[in-house]
């Protein structure tokens, strides 16, 4: 049987993490490619529905990543995201998802390495817990 290749959906902010992802790409840092980037202007615009939809429709994990605290281009959008994701993690298990499938990070523009590292970590973590229940059910 082919090895399980997790699908990861990453909501990245237009300013910091999107730049870091580009940097990770152009500076030859290898990171697992099943990562699907969805650029948003700010992590503060990521509605929990988006995360749930991604998980329900086949993503094995979701990353939300924005600017460091105090650096948000929109002043405090990342703090709003932090509160929202904290709450969402609380109820994630009620949907049948392990909380580890959702991760929030701050990755600055020059942190290409950290972006690649977070991606590798998430892939190995998700490989350990296996495919997402919802996608298994769907299959």
């Amino acid at each position: 049987m082919a090895e399980f290749e997790p699908t990861i959906v990453a909501f990245v902010c237009n300013w910091c993490t999107y730049t870091a992802a580009d940097l990770a790409g152009t500076s030859r840092l290898s990171y697992p490619k099943p990562v699907r980037l969805i650029r948003v202007m700010c992590t503060g615009m990521v509605d929990p529905q988006y995360i749930l939809k991604a998980l329900l429709e086949g993503a094995d994990a979701v990353l939300v990543s924005g600017c460091h605290p105090g650096d948000c281009h929109y002043i405090n959008g990342n703090f709003k995201a932090r509160r929202r994701i904290r709450l969402l993690k609380e109820i994630l298990s009620q949907f049948g998802f392990e909380p580890e499938r959702l991760r929030l990070t701050w990755i600055g523009a020059s942190d290409g390495i950290q972006f690649a590292e977070v991606m590798r970590e998430m892939v190995s973590q998700v490989k350990a817990i296996g495919p997402c229940t919802a996608s298994r059910l769907a299959a």
Partner: peptide
């Protein structure tokens, strides 16, 4: 408005 979307998600 700067288009950050804080309003949309709340």
């Amino acid at each position: 408005c700067q288009g950050c979307g804080a309003c949309a998600s709340i």
